[in-house]
Design a protein around this nucleic acid. Structure first.
Length: 587
RNA sequence: CGGGGUGUGGCGCAGCCUGGCUAGCGCGUCUGGUUUGGGACCAGAAAGUCGCAGGUUCAAAUCCUGUCACCCCGACCA
């Protein structure tokens, strides 16, 4: 492609509103253009990168034995009512009504496609002989995000690869799942994205049934915990906290005292009012566990984790109790519950860290009052101690003796064993070898294609612009002609351009008649991995100048045979992103 | 959905507080010329309903009311 024949509207200045590197650089590099909040146009350059990511995804899906199809964005609302996801998605679901001749047809713009594919499969798969099979597509998804943000990271319309596996047995599902998991590793590696596969909430199947693929990045919206020593990694929701012996400080147990704390009902207010650290507080949460009230105790500065509570206490349905229940159980309004002297006797479950609190503070089960110098055993005794809170930076690793580090990350992929949630709801059954009808067992597997680009840029840029790996770069090589009116320069450039194009290299020839500085700046900004400079200076010696985007120095390359040499470099780099992978040493 | 911020040529901004001549500046664009290895210089030109609507006033980019859009923080996120 000739630069003068495409449209690459680069910008010297950062448009108002863009704050994170990926957003700023995609705008400045002329890759995207905003149409409205949460909706971006992909300009020629951006589309090329997006297509490269898409192609890698497609190749690895095909290699893993998945079969591509395309489902419509539009589907009937009724399908979503059958699975209860109209209310589950709520306002996120994009709905509209089509006016047909004599009736109105309520439709949904798919936020994902479990319903549609399951309905299709229910009609066309009826035997165990037709499975296992994994179907996938790469299409636009629609979600009315309450708050689109961070440029291309969180938008209302986005490109997603979604795959669905259909199996007759759990063992077969596990094999399908592992294939996808392995394919994801290959995809993100080929894309040059640093990622971690972390354990995530597993839903109905339990166990090792869900992983998220996370790209650690400062601007990521998710939090993950990672142990550098043993490799354990999980999202914050799922991360377990290793058990450690509690070393109780050797201090005198002071007498239990009730104090007035008028109006102080939150942890922050109480700790301020009583001038004590939140770590000294015992937060008492009243939940309804399968309809019955329970109390959950966590340290004041910790957050309770409902998934952990559910598992540890063997509860199906868990929800925070409404104020009436709290008043009835504790005898006090919301904000003053405590484990000592509750009005009704209910089960008390405590997070392990509560064991370490000596002379603590908690609600007095009376309006506007707290008790201080609360101590375990002397004043109260929980029915169970367990890991019931969200993990934090520095918490003990559950698998080794090291500690967990918390990092922000961008979710770029998710693999999940669904089980029969949708096949039950949509009546997708198959006949087994024993002639019995059984529900098909599903898995679902998503990749946010736009997010691959954004997360790559977030972690691979410098002061001058984007630093693309060969595999995602919109063009693999840029030919920078220093002086376009100089005929020998242009002739040499066009010859090289022809050779590279013939070798199947994506090459961009910067034939704009402007100063060299402008072209160097633009080449750096759009991040093309390999730049070849064609100038009078080099040509005098029969040389081109070759420079990798992430290296400081350039090397001279004989004009003779340059096309072959460059093509070879590009082909090597395409395979492993090897030079790109080593860039940190150079940057 | 709560809190905060911003809307002025294509892009980035000043002007608004304290109303008053023809609404400025930088970048970009176009024309001519000089230049040509890291965002050149000179001369000239085009391009703006000051987000929109209403109000106050002799007079509104500026003050008041409403409204829309966009951005940030938080809540939410199959």
């Amino acid at each position: 492609m000739l630069w003068t024949q495409t449209l690459i509207p680069t910008m010297k200045e950062t448009p108002e509103g863009a704050e994170i590197p990926s957003h700023i650089l995609m705008l400045r590099a002329g890759m995207i253009s905003q149409v409205m909040a949460g909706a971006y146009a992909y300009l020629p350059l951006g589309l090329r990168s997006l297509r490269k990511a898409e192609r890698i995804v497609r190749e690895e899906m095909d290699a893993a034995g998945a079969v591509e199809l395309a489902l419509p964005a539009m589907s009937p609302l009724s399908l979503w009512e059958q699975t209860g996801r109209v209310s589950a998605f709520g306002n996120v679901l994009v709905q509209t009504t089509l006016q047909r001749k004599d009736r109105k047809v309520p439709v949904v713009f798919g936020p994902t496609h479990e319903e549609i594919i399951t309905d299709f499969v229910a009609h066309h798969i009826s035997s165990y002989r037709q499975m296992p099979i994994t179907l996938y597509q790469i299409t636009s998804k629609f979600r009315n995000e309450e708050r689109p943000r961070f440029g291309v990271l969180r938008t209302s319309e986005f490109l997603m690869k979604d795959a669905y596996s259909f199996d007759a047995t759990l063992e077969s599902l596990n094999r399908s799942y592992d294939k996808m998991y392995d394919a994801y590793c290959k995809i993100f590696t080929r894309c040059g994205v640093n990622y971690l596969a972390v354990e995530a909430e597993s839903g109905p199947i339990g166990g090792d049934a869900s992983h998220e693929f996370m790209a650690p990045a400062e601007n990521g919206e998710d939090s993950i915990l990672h142990c550098k020593d043993c490799g354990y990694a999980a999202n914050q929701e799922k991360a377990e906290i290793g058990a450690r012996d509690c070393v109780a400080p050797d201090v005198e147990l002071k007498p239990l005292t009730k104090l007035d704390t008028p109006g102080a009902s939150t942890i922050e207010q109480v700790s301020k009012f009583l001038k004590c650290k939140p770590q000294k507080l015992i937060k008492t949460l009243i939940y309804l566990a399968d309809g019955k009230p329970i109390a959950v105790l966590v340290r004041g500065d910790h957050d309770a984790n409902e998934g952990k509570i559910r598992r540890a206490c063997k509860i199906e349905k868990l929800e925070l109790a409404p104020p009436e229940v709290i008043e009835k159980v504790t005898g006090a309004p919301v904000g003053f519950a405590g484990p000592v002297g509750m009005k009704e006797k209910i089960p008390i479950y405590a997070d392990r860290d509560v064991q370490c609190i000596v002379n603590g503070v908690t609600g007095a089960n009376a309006a506007d009052a707290h008790v201080v110098n609360v101590n375990l055993r002397r004043d109260f005794m929980p029915d169970l101690f367990a890991d019931l809170r969200n993990a934090l930076d520095g918490d003990p690793c559950p698998r080794c003796s090291s500690i967990l580090a918390m990092r922000h990350a961008i979710e770029i992929g998710h693999v999940f064993k669904l089980g029969t949630k949708y096949t039950d709801a949509l009546n997708a059954k198959y006949a087994d070898a024993d002639e019995q009808l059984k529900p098909i067992i599903m898995g679902c597997y998503g990749i946010g294609v736009n997010r691959i680009l954004a997360s790559l840029i977030e972690t691979s840029h410098d002061a001058d612009g984007i630093v693309w790996p060969m595999t995602l770069a919109p063009y693999e090589v840029v030919l920078t002609v220093v002086k376009v009116p100089d005929e020998p320069s242009m002739a040499a450039a066009k010859k090289l351009y022809g050779e590279l194009a013939a070798a199947g290299i994506d090459v961009l020839l910067d034939d704009r008649d402007c100063r060299a500085g402008v072209k160097f700046k633009d080449a750096d900004l759009i991040g093309i991995p390999l730049r070849i400079v064609i100038g009078e200076r080099g040509l005098k010696e029969g040389k081109f100048e070759a420079k990798w985007r992430w290296e400081k120095a350039a090397e001279m390359l004989p004009v003779e045979g340059a096309g072959d040499a460059i093509a070879k470099w590009v082909q090597e780099e395409r395979k492993e992103n090897a030079r790109f992978g080593n860039r940190r040493d150079a940057l």
